[in-house]
């Protein structure tokens, strides 16, 4: 079984968010990047578990500059066999999907996994675009993935519940919480990561259909009105008369 896992980077969840150049660009100063949590904790780890029980290979793929390599090495340390970096700035999701699709078309992958979303741009869109460009089924928000022969059984979130779906290879999935447990790289993995092959390939021509023109920090709440616990009942009046939400 050949599995491809899409790996992106994201600022650490506690990073301070700031913008520069007149609010047109994200200020990376002092920002620590991590593997996007959904890609690492769920997509990659489940891919590795499947490979360990059923055999096969796990390849990672990332669209990004050289600064992405530390992220890819972390995926190697956790257990990926090899990785691809497509050397371009991932500014538009369609552009990224077109890059990954071009590579995946040649690879005969059985399962392609993305994360549920990147925690910086929160798009949840790469997996769907990729599946369309590859003309494959797509199951988003998968919380469980099992494989028997060349059939995947997937549990995924739908509005108001969950669904269990069966689909033959090849298919594209986006991975959400529940699919696997976080795996901490061990010393052997970290050593082995150094010798694994990271292929760098150039981007292909593809349109950038969207671009971010500017950013604004969301306004926090100005003041919190404190209500004495003894007088908790008065909250309900305030919610009615002042906040007008009940």
């Amino acid at each position: 079984m050949k599995i491809l896992v899409c790996i992106s980077k994201a600022p650490d969840t506690t990073a301070k968010i700031a913008f520069k150049d007149n609010n047109t660009a994200f200020d990376e100063n002092n920002v620590q990047y991590i593997v996007n949590p959904y890609d690492e904790w769920y997509a990659l780890v489940r891919a590795l578990e499947l490979k360990e029980t059923l055999g096969g290979t796990v390849t990672t793929i990332s669209v990004g500059g050289a600064d992405m390599e530390a992220i890819i090495r972390k995926a190697f340390a956790i257990g990926a066999d090899d990785g691809v970096r497509i050397d371009g700035e991932p500014t538009d999701t369609y552009f990224v999907a077109a890059q990954i699709a071009a590579y995946a078309k040649q690879g005969a992958f059985d399962i392609i996994l993305a994360g549920k979303e990147t925690i910086n741009y929160n798009g949840s869109s790469l997996g769907g675009m990729l599946a369309e460009l590859l003309d494959m089924p797509y199951i988003s928000m998968a919380t469980k993935l099992d494989v028997a022969g060349s059939t995947a059984t997937v549990e995924c979130d739908i509005d108001g519940g969950t669904e269990v779906i069966e689909c033959d290879f090849p298919l594209v999935l986006s991975a959400a919480k529940g699919m696997a447990e976080v795996r901490i790289p061990n010393m052997r993995g970290i050593m082995a990561a150094r010798t694994k092959v990271l292929n760098v390939i150039p981007v292909i021509a593809a349109d950038k259909l969207t671009e971010v023109k500017s950013y604004t920090l969301s306004q926090g709440r100005t003041t919190c009105k404190m209500i004495d616990a003894e007088n908790a009942a008065s909250l309900i009046e305030m919610l009615h008369n002042e906040a007008k939400v009940i």
């Binding site: 798009g123 997996g127 797509y138």
Partner: peptide
């Protein structure tokens, strides 16, 4: 942008070659 849209909207955007803004 509910769970159906998360699966369908990006696909449709890629098929139509339409710029997509989710959410």
């Amino acid at each position: 942008n509910d769970l159906t849209a998360k699966a369908v909207a990006p696909r449709l955007a890629a098929r139509m070659k339409a710029g997509f803004v989710p959410g």
